[in-house]
Write a protein that binds this DNA or RNA. Structure first.
Lengths: 343, 343
DNA sequence: TAGCCTCTAGACAACGTTGTCAACTGCGGG
DNA sequence: CCCGCAGTTGACAACGTTGTCTAGAGGCTA
């Protein structure tokens, strides 16, 4: 009995087609197609014979052929920076949920923060004729997508705006969130506040810096050059930057960390530092409440970013031709202790 | 100039084909195909004319048609439990890297730990004619994949073994890792050690339980029924289980947590608990070293699981017909403090 | 110069599916 | 008894690409 699959082996790697099913069931090709797709106009008896042939042969519809014929793939692509980054997991998951609710499959890939790879990946997805594309940009020139968009591939950008083309985009309120974070530290008595951020070529990094400067200015505080550090988020650089700010003759009494990777490194540095230093981080992270002191953060709603973007995408797919929209998702300050250390 | 893309607009949603390119370049269809695929036998002059037509029209090869014709898609599918779970991020990323190095695209989807959805997803990927499939099983009966495997779709299981079929599988040494964890607690003087694990229908949960029991028995310790809790990993259940063990007349002095979600909840519970209690968790997690005390864990190498599985998959795709293999990846005990609290 | 070989190029079928349309059945009404 | 109609069913073309095969141009050798 176990050899039913092995025993009568068809040529390995060969799949039955609708033609084979039709032959076995003694019906026409189109009738099989109707049964497979649940179309009406087939008698129960015929349907049963076809179904039997399908299971007997282990038939499965070839969606490549179907796509070729129909022009739609019922799948969308997601290009993100790094699947292993905890921030993108929920975002990806949210997009997948929306896609699923529309009967579409999600295909995703990582750009590893490399513009060339982002382009390669996005165009590979277009070649597979995904119906739409959700992109978290790594590069800042997306004109390469113009022919694709013109050809009808709906495209939505998330987390960062597209470069040199006009398209739907969903962003967090990076500017406002950063302002809130810094204002919170100022309200707790701090005057010398450092900012450690990501590379300025990244839009979110620039916006958060702008929020920091704006909040400081609004409180009448000037910002020393030595209080701002922008660059890669590698632990060594961040450590060095934090150490420099903390060990200066007039050290900062509070730090604002520009993203979750920076925050984590800063927490490690502060753990080794003698004086208590206040800290607010941009981005929440899972165990922020378990550390002592628990970490105050400005939380983004990654799932909502993803849901919103996917929602816009499917609006486009359903045929809207409104002008591209820009949606901003609010952030939320979560006070847990580290940001309430008095200055 | 900016209206080149908008102005001469073809019918919206229509894409140029090789035929269009051929007509515009004044060459034959097959010549375009040769240029697009970098095949030899085209003079530089002809090639240039074709390239111009391609960029002028914004042509992109239709991979559905290509797949239909060639029979291979150069893509593999990954079915996992939940992309948002930090354990699967690195695994997925590792699979993607290997796929990329073989020129293949990765398509992935989440089963949400639901066997029906796992099947639906896996078969959808098969319908799209992925060349191979990496599956993290949610269900325990994978006979539905038999026709697919017979038809030549290479299939590898990771993290948990397949049910009722024979196929390649890559697993962590859950049994050995659990033994190590419990032996470590025993070596630190504990005699009453509790285990809070996942649902026993999950293979890894059973193996870890078996490791726990084996290690206890090896030390001549008996296990009270009240020390073992198996079920969902929802925080409330875990909290209740932990509380019951800690508040019993003869409370446990150490806990072994069956996976990262359980560990995190237990850490929260212990933070509110008066007496110090030792803890070792299965699975590492990002900030385990930042909590006080830092959490001792048995770490799995998720990236290596993914790399190994993808490696096996591509071996199959290159045509091996060895018997299915079972590969076990060792775990590593990382002592950070919480497991070294003396009993 | 005939004969052969190489190089470039295109015509054509095929991949497996779905949309269109026509053919056939059986039935009820005139 | 004939007509029309609804309900089933299948033949056939088309989707856009690639593999195969053949034609023609041009160069080389004997």
């Amino acid at each position: 009995m176990t050899d039913t699959a092995r025993g009568n082996s068809r040529r390995y790697g060969t799949r039955p087609t609708m033609k084979d099913v039709a032959a076995r069931a003694g019906v026409g090709l189109k009738t099989v197609s109707r049964v497979v797709n649940g179309e009406p106009g087939v008698t129960p008896d015929t349907e049963r014979r076809v179904q039997e042939a399908i299971t007997a042969l282990g038939f499965r519809r070839n969606d490549s052929a179907r796509t070729l014929r129909k022009g739609r793939t019922a799948s969308i692509g997601l290009v993100l920076e790094d699947l292993a980054d905890p921030f993108y997991g929920p975002l990806s998951r949210a997009v997948e949920e929306v896609a699923r609710s529309h009967g579409a499959l999600l295909i995703n890939g990582s750009s590893a923060e490399d513009p060339a790879r982002e382009q390669e990946l996005a165009l590979a997805l277009c070649a597979r004729r995904v119906d739409g594309l959700v992109v978290i940009p790594a590069g800042d020139d997306h004109r390469y997508l113009e022919p694709e968009i013109a050809a009808g591939i709906a495209t939505v950008f998330v987390d960062r705006p597209p470069g040199r083309i006009d398209a739907d985009v969903v962003l967090s309120d990076n500017f406002g969130g950063a302002q809130d974070a810094v204002a919170h530290l100022i309200a707790n008595g701090h005057r010398r506040i450092g900012f450690i951020g990501d590379q300025p070529r990244i839009h979110t990094a620039r916006e958060r810096l702008r929020g920091y400067r704006t909040a400081m200015a609004a409180a009448g505080l000037s910002v020393a050059d030595a209080w701002v550090s922008l660059g890669t988020t590698e632990p060594e650089r961040v450590r060095a930057a934090a150490a420099a700010m903390l060990d200066a003759p007039e050290p900062v009494t509070a730090l604002f960390a520009g993203n979750n990777r920076v925050t984590v490194t800063v927490v490690r540095v502060l753990g080794e530092h003698p004086r208590p230093v206040a800290l607010v981080g941009f981005d929440d992270f899972e165990l922020a409440d378990l550390v002592r002191p628990a970490i105050t953060v400005v939380a983004q709603d990654a799932a909502r970013l993803g849901r919103t973007a996917a929602g816009l995408l499917f609006r486009r797919l359903e045929g809207t031709d409104e002008a591209p929209r820009r949606v901003e998702i609010p952030t939320r300050l979560i006070a847990r202790g580290s940001g309430e250390i008095r200055g």
